[in-house]
């Protein structure tokens, strides 16, 4: 089987432009609270979601926007939800971390790891009520240290449930480099439940599509769980306004606020010896320095796919203009016609 790269590009670019608009609206104060985007994860999400069938279910984490858009949720109702509007997907009650669509059998949660049990329950219902359907769980590598996700893998394996566990590994959980708090190897960990495991470069849509195809066939046909591990980036950091990203982008301005208290505390009487204090300081500086490793634009899946399609400039331009127009129409339908999306 071969992927249709053009339709995947459409899905990924649409999601990207939509979330860029969300970012602009968030910065302008139209959206409250936190905002976690899936910018950088589009390839693995598109690869999996584009191959789902009507009765398949999705259990989503705090980055639910791209999978729901790609699954066909009305973008206007999604955006209205973020704006807290009564016509939003959940009547303005959920917000971006608590998105639900009955029609798409899709449920999200802001509790890290919760997509594991959710997918297992969806798969159990599928086994009884919708044979041949599967459930997908999306989560990050940090969530793999959450007990409930480990328990879910065991449950799916022991009960022979059609669950596709999809880990989007950006190597970071907020400000923590996941490797520093994780024992062993995640592929081995998932494999030890007796599941088939697959690893893929999350910036390469063709590879993602191929892996997702194999994984979905396996879980759908055999009724067994599969673990798919994709290495991804987060071009916006953990969430919009991420303090570490702000600091790494504007070190002089942001460090000015931080350094006074930090150095006073460093030099305070009574505490650990200098070696340990230096260790703490080094840790903070290294974190600020390394946080951008998750933002490597060289690994932007949308840009990489566009390069593959180059040579067809006219078709690309038509598609890109069409998506821009569609996003403008979404904004207009949400009463935001004059919000400039590319300002940020």
């Amino acid at each position: 089987m071969q992927p249709d790269l053009w339709s995947l590009y459409r899905l990924m670019l649409y999601s990207r432009r939509f979330e860029e608009a969300v970012a602009a609206l968030w910065h302008a104060g139209h959206i409250s609270g936190e905002m976690h985007l899936g910018i950088g994860e589009e390839a693995i999400v598109a690869a999996v979601v584009s191959q789902l069938e009507d009765q398949d279910a999705m259990a989503l984490d705090h980055r639910g926007t791209p999978p729901l858009l790609m699954r066909g949720v009305d973008p206007v109702r999604l955006l209205l939800e973020f704006l807290g509007h009564p016509d939003g997907l959940c009547g303005g009650h959920g917000g971006h971390m608590h998105l639900f669509s009955v029609k798409h059998l899709s449920a999200s949660s802001g509790i890290v790891g919760a997509s594991g049990p959710s997918a297992v329950g969806f798969a159990l219902a599928a086994q009884h009520l919708r044979p041949g359907s599967v459930a997908v769980a999306f989560f990050g590598e940090g969530a793999l240290n959450q007990g409930m996700l480990m328990e879910s893998m065991n449950l799916a394996a022991a009960w022979h449930l059609p669950v596709l566990f999809v880990c989007k590994d950006n190597e970071w959980a907020i400000t923590t480099k996941s490797a520093t708090v994780t024992g062993g190897n995640l592929m081995n960990r998932a494999g030890s439940f007796g599941m088939k495991t697959m690893a893929v470069d999350g910036s390469d849509i063709e590879a993602c599509w191929q892996s997702a195809w194999e994984a979905l066939c396996q879980t759908r046909d055999n009724g067994e769980p599969v673990y798919l591990h994709a290495s991804c980036i987060h071009l916006e950091g953990h969430f919009l306004g991420d303090q570490l990203i702000r600091t790494s982008r504007h070190p002089v301005k942001e460090m000015r606020k931080m350094t006074g208290p930090l150095m006073r505390s460093f030099a305070k009487m009574h505490g650990s010896n200098v070696r340990k204090r230096m260790g703490g300081l080094r840790h903070i500086l290294a974190t600020i320095q390394n946080i951008r490793t998750q933002m490597s634009i060289k690994r932007d899946p949308v840009v990489i796919l566009r390069q593959k399609l180059h040579g067809e400039e006219l078709q690309l331009k038509l598609l890109e203009d069409k998506i821009d127009t569609e996003i403008e129409q979404v904004l207009e339908a949400c009463g935001l016609a004059d919000v400039k999306v590319n300002d940020e």
Binding site: I174, T175, T176, L244, M258, P261, L262, S265, F266, K268, G271, S272, K276, R277, G279, G280, L281, H283, I284, T287
Partner: peptide, 13 residues
């Protein structure tokens, strides 16, 4: 390590 950075540089990791 980040949220309590002021304590981290005084008491270590």
């Amino acid at each position: 390590g980040m949220i309590r950075h002021n304590l981290l540089v005084r008491f270590g990791r």
